[in-house]
Design a protein around this nucleic acid. Structure first.
Length: 442
RNA sequence: GUGAGUGUAGCUCAGUUGGUUAGAGCACCAGGUUGUGGCCCUGGGGGUCGGGGGUUCAAGUCCCCUCACUCACCCCA
């Protein structure tokens, strides 16, 4: 043997051991089922994209965080930073795809970020997008799906914050801050929940926006009441902005749809302080936050009507969201939201008593597998004691003992690991008995 | 990219003003138990004290450098 190297893993990446994979798969299966139930179709795209596909789509900050290198033929390539840009490329490359195109995509993305709590360099995103519909109905579908996914995962305390890029644009416009300052204005007011109204004021002044404009912005931001009321208050301030008014009309339409979807208002909030960093958003933007634990947003998205045009020469209206799998899992772990016993897919361990009874054990395992029961046949060297230990460590709920006595009588002994109860049944009744036991355990 | 903190067994950590052979719990392995896991008892394996240099009769402990990790900022899922 050569000298061993210390096993290490690249910063910000993780191995998912079986027990974690079982939990991840549980979450993914629920998300996927809902995506399909809402009429979305699956898509996957390559890990590596040409650099020209990725660059300049997200904004300066994101460009810096995109993994970039050259291949052996000196071609400039990169790892995908999100799933939205690859989708846009696909839509432009395959014009025959019928529109509106509703696709979902669950794949890892890479960001050359410094990792911290709930933040990784390689992580999964679950995206749903609708391409080819300019209607607020499409945005409503997206928000409805966010609501349904989180409800199904047993989230009960969350807020889907909704704002509109055109309204933010309008605020900058009527404030007199100067349109070149728009991004800075957004960035400052985005910090509201962190630094408060006074902090936002300071931020704005620091960015060389005139005190009069700052005051006007702060006036517009201070709204109160339910979503419709606050939307009206905002509308009153934006009379002078054509774009701002358009944003208001779209938001009103969106909230009308959300009412028809019967999404309770406690979960959806018109929030002027939401801005979102990516450059490509053009219409409604949304993200979901949870109060506990403090982890940032667990979903994020919005409308991007001009992005696909960068690839196709023809604009396609599009909207969609990312559901942040990693953060959802982090929250579910911290709040203990996973069902108990979610440890292994294996339902039954068939023990092997000794070489003489091995054929009997194999026959039993084959029979269980044929019946669709997830069955592990012990392949190690340990005696019964060790085999029970294995079932215990893995959390396998049932153990089938097929020793000489059982073989003699053409029976098996079934042990429920949690209670320790054991019963002997004939081979004909084995599958049926196990089928009855399993639901009680899981 | 900016700032702060932490590095001792696989994991969580203890280790006195610097003082002999560096400990505990959990985990792991074996036995107690040749047809039964968890609980219990006994035993065992496992450490370049992150790495390098310095001070000292003596360094896990003090100093310097370096690396790694963690947290926060920025930004984001």
């Amino acid at each position: 043997m050569s000298k061993k190297i210390t096993p290490r893993i690249y910063k910000g990446t993780r191995d998912f051991l079986p027990e974690q994979m079982v939990k991840r798969n549980y979450v993914i299966s629920i998300i996927k089922e809902i995506f399909e139930r809402y009429g979305f179709e699956p898509l996957e795209t390559p890990t590596i994209e040409l650099w020209e596909t990725l660059s300049g789509k997200y904004g300066e900050e994101a460009d810096r965080l995109t993994y970039r290198f050259t291949d052996r033929g000196n071609r400039e390539v990169g790892l995908r930073y999100d799933l939205t840009v690859p989708l846009s490329r696909v839509v432009a490359m395959y014009p025959q795809i019928p529109k509106p195109f509703k696709r979902y995509q669950i794949q890892p993305v890479w960001r050359a970020d410094k990792p911290q709590k709930g933040r990784f360099r390689e992580f999964y995103q679950c995206d749903v997008d609708i391409v080819g519909s300019p209607s607020m109905l499409a945005d409503a579908e997206i928000i409805a799906i966010i609501y349904e996914v989180l409800q199904s995962l047993n989230f009960r305390q969350f807020t889907i914050r909704i704002n509109h890029r055109k309204i933010l644009f309008g605020i900058t416009e009527v404030s007199g801050a100067g349109m070149e300052k728009e991004l800075e204005v957004c960035r400052a007011i985005d910090k509201m929940d962190k630094i408060g109204m006074e902090g936002v004021k300071e931020e704005l002044l620091k960015r060389e926006i005139s005190p009069e404009a700052v005051q006007r912005i702060l006036d517009i931001l201070s709204t109160s009441g339910d979503n419709a009321t606050r939307l009206q208050q905002t509308a009153a301030h934006l009379q002078a902005s054509e774009v701002g008014q358009q944003g208001i009309r779209e938001m009103q339409e969106l909230f009308e749809y959300l009412a028809l979807y019967q999404i309770p208002e406690d979960f959806v909030q018109f929030d002027l302080y939401l801005s979102r960093g990516l450059d490509y958003y053009t219409g409604p933007i949304y993200e979901t936050v949870v109060r506990e634990p403090r982890i940032g947003s667990i979903t994020g998205g919005g409308r991007y009507d001009n992005l696909i045009g960068l690839f196709s020469g023809q604009d396609f209206p599009a909207t969609g969201t990312t559901i942040g799998l990693e953060r959802i899992i982090t929250v579910m772990e911290e709040l203990n939201m996973f069902p108990p016993h979610l440890r292994t897919p294996v339902q039954v361990l068939v023990t092997v008593f000794d070489p003489n009874t091995l054929p009997y054990s194999i026959a039993i395992a084959r029979e269980l597998r044929a019946a669709g029961i997830r069955t592990d046949l012990y392949t190690g060297k340990s005696k019964l004691r060790g085999q029970f230990g294995l079932a215990n460590d893995k959390g396998i709920p049932l153990v089938v003992i097929a020793g000489p006595d059982e073989q003699q009588a053409n029976q098996v002994n079934i042990k429920q690991m949690e209670t320790g109860e054991q019963i002997t049944v004939s081979r004909e009744n084995m599958v049926q008995t196990i089928r009855q036991l399993l639901p009680k355990i899981n």
